[in-house]
Design a protein around this nucleic acid. Sequence first.
DNA 1: CAGTACGTTCAGTTTTTACTGTACAAAGTT
DNA 2: AACTTTGTACAGTAAAAACTGAACGTACTG
Lengths: 180, 180
Amino acid sequence: MDGKEQLERVRERVIETIAKNMNLYGITDSIGRLYGMLYFQNHPMTLDEMKEELGMSKTSMSTSVRTLTDLKMVEKVWKKGTRKDLYQAEEDWYQTFIDFFSIKWRAGISMNIAAMTKSILELERLAKSEEADEEVRTAAEIDITKMKAALSYYEWLNRLVDSFESEEIFDFIPKNKDEL
Amino acid sequence: MDGKEQLERVRERVIETIAKNMNLYGITDSIGRLYGMLYFQNHPMTLDEMKEELGMSKTSMSTSVRTLTDLKMVEKVWKKGTRKDLYQAEEDWYQTFIDFFSIKWRAGISMNIAAMTKSILELERLAKSEEADEEVRTAAEIDITKMKAALSYYEWLNRLVDSFESEEIFDFIPKNKDEL
DNA sequence: CAGTACGTTCAGTTTTTACTGTACAAAGTT
DNA sequence: AACTTTGTACAGTAAAAACTGAACGTACTG
């Protein structure tokens, strides 16, 4: 078998695996394949080259690359003499992991903490209110307990993400198995 | 304002927030709302009760509850004297977090490790082959380096998940802020 | 300053996913 | 054994998401 062809086939398969994996994280196959392709390409690519390589529209390449740069999985690079935008894959997957979950989780965490905090306050007022009848007040108490548990979980998650961003997580789970 | 109604409104809002958050993790709004509802319900529910409460079809309740039990976010409970299946929400969100990512990530990790390992072997054979021309061989070498880096990342992720499942992660990031 | 090259916006289309109602199988009741 | 009750499979429909091509704005080029 031709060596070049074999190399190509291996790449294809690995890219497909990467795409399928990213799919698990809520990224579409196309975008996953784009990332995989950029990962194995050893030079930055233009939108037209991506379009050519994947057989998709330039519009799709534009929006997909936008998604990937938002997730910091791809970055725009500058090169003298060309007017086209050039993009290359972030190669450090530890970094990719950290950025991905920091970006995704932080948004949700703060949203949830805000909602829970506000709701706890409202229910505490209700639980103490003279007007509300007994049944409602005990129900409110129960909900408050649940929301406080949720709040404590979100604070923990926040600290977990902190340890990702500060890379302190690698003190606990070292990158190399034997380290520490 | 009526206390019961106010309680209801607060719950609705929190459930909506929970659903929106789960959405971030690739769970649909409906399923998220179902989980949120079960979380605040203080007793196990039947499919018919869920259907009633959410105004959706029983079929949907059945499949949604299946998704949630697969993720260990909901469990079936047994109660004497009823023929209907009863379900209740897992209330410990730390546990939910651990199960969710263990289940989701493990599958991807082993799939990827297998694919990478196989591909590395194939490319190493190619890189050493006399028949392949220089260009292909150096390209293979580069790909091998990248795949080995990927492999090392997946092994790290595996160890991270280990620390979730063994709950050793809580030694590093304690549940309560002040602990340790 | 006209002309060209480039990336993105937007409206329309295709594909995928979520949801429903009917039909059915399994288990319980009389 | 006939009749209920319950959960789920399946096929069809409705809703959502991905994708495309044409049109546009911006910035570079001669």
